[in-house]
Simulated scan of single mutants.
Amino acid sequence: MAGVLDSVNQRTQLVGQNRLELLLFRLRGRQIYGINVFKVKEVLQCPRLSSIPNSRQVVRGVAHIRGETIPIIDLSMAIRLPGIPQEELASSFVIITEYNRKTQGFLVTGVDRIMNMNWEEILPPPKGAGKDVYLTAVTRIDDKLVEIIDVEKILAEVSPLGEDVTEAVLSKSADRVPGHLPVLVVDDSAVARRQIERCLTAIGMEVVTKNDGKQAYEYLKEVTADGSRARDHFSLIISDVEMPEMDGYTLVTKVKGDPAMEDIFVMLHTSLSGVFNQAMVKKVGADDFMAKFSPDELAERVMDIIDQG
């Protein structure tokens, strides 16, 4: 897997085409799991791990990799499966990722291959899966079910982020926000939707949430069917990038190509912080980009956008 990330530029060609590349891997057992290659920095044989006193059991230790000290999370344990035995660590793999401005490694038993796919082939988890499931989506490859892990849910449990807007920022919102139209928030992760909604309601904004780009675009088509414009209904749209059925890039492309929606402000808000760049924002026509998740920064940015109105 040494060459897993040897061509990030090639992957940027997927932007706006509703496509993604999945890195397939296994935990303990035969089930296949997937993670977006855009979030992967490196895949390597499990290095020597140093223990961390008083750390959570799911954090198996830290590894010193290319000048960084990186926490290594046992992904099996994180999704409530039996952890990888100590004697199997040397034959296991670590997937080094960057999420929400932080670098961490996920310990897995085996790494399979990379698959280039269309987001339309990536579906939401079955409705009966329940709220506590650690999945954002599922797909089928070679007639086998592949489960796509909700990493944001895992990280919210293992290393919780502050989710509250500080008083200093809240004090600025009273004169700037009241009376404005709602914000449309689009994200497939229930954890991310909750974080964003909590942030925006704290500064006095109403929020409408949708679970993926397809759902959001169909909703926008519905509310503008009477000849109104998207800006008549919403102050702005905040959208994740990775979503089943229709990703955020494709949603932006469709919105900006629709006369009834083209002038609404769209911010991409994503955990793809490490490899994302402004060239991608410009390619699909988004108005802004922010890496997840800083409640104060998001609140301030939304207030600025509204002020510029």
Results as ranks from 00 to 15, higher is better:
residue 304 D to A: 13
residue 74 D to G: 03
residue 190 A to V: 09
residue 215 Q to K: 10
residue 121 E to S: 14
residue 266 V to N: 01
residue 290 M to D: 05
residue 144 K to M: 05
residue 44 L to P: 10
residue 69 T to W: 08
residue 146 V to L: 02
residue 273 S to C: 11
residue 12 T to C: 12
residue 93 F to T: 12
residue 86 Q to C: 06
residue 296 D to H: 00
residue 204 G to M: 00
residue 80 R to C: 08
residue 188 D to G: 04
residue 165 V to C: 02
residue 159 S to M: 14
residue 39 K to E: 00
residue 296 D to T: 03
residue 122 I to C: 10
residue 3 G to Q: 15
residue 96 I to G: 03
residue 71 P to V: 04
residue 205 M to D: 02
residue 176 R to S: 12
residue 212 D to H: 15
residue 189 S to N: 06
residue 216 A to F: 14
residue 30 R to S: 11
residue 90 A to R: 08
residue 131 K to W: 08
residue 48 R to C: 01
residue 229 R to V: 04
residue 113 R to Q: 15
residue 99 Y to F: 13
residue 186 V to K: 01
residue 17 Q to N: 04
residue 210 K to Y: 09
residue 3 G to W: 15
residue 214 K to T: 10
residue 152 E to S: 09
residue 25 F to R: 11
residue 265 F to K: 15
residue 94 V to G: 11
residue 212 D to W: 09
residue 114 I to W: 14
residue 53 P to I: 06
residue 34 G to R: 06
residue 30 R to E: 15
residue 157 E to A: 03
residue 270 T to H: 03
residue 172 K to S: 13
residue 34 G to P: 08
residue 163 E to I: 04
residue 43 V to P: 12
residue 145 L to R: 03
residue 19 R to M: 03
residue 308 Q to H: 13
residue 231 R to L: 05
residue 132 D to V: 03
residue 120 E to I: 07
residue 222 E to M: 12
residue 111 V to F: 00
residue 218 E to L: 14
residue 7 S to E: 14
residue 5 L to H: 12
residue 294 S to N: 13
residue 182 P to Q: 10
residue 262 E to A: 05
residue 142 D to R: 02
residue 54 N to Y: 12
residue 89 L to K: 06
residue 161 L to T: 06
residue 64 H to M: 05
residue 78 A to N: 06
residue 88 E to F: 12
residue 94 V to N: 13
residue 156 A to P: 06
residue 49 L to T: 02
residue 270 T to P: 02
residue 117 M to R: 04
residue 160 P to S: 01
residue 192 A to R: 02
residue 11 R to K: 11
residue 99 Y to Q: 10
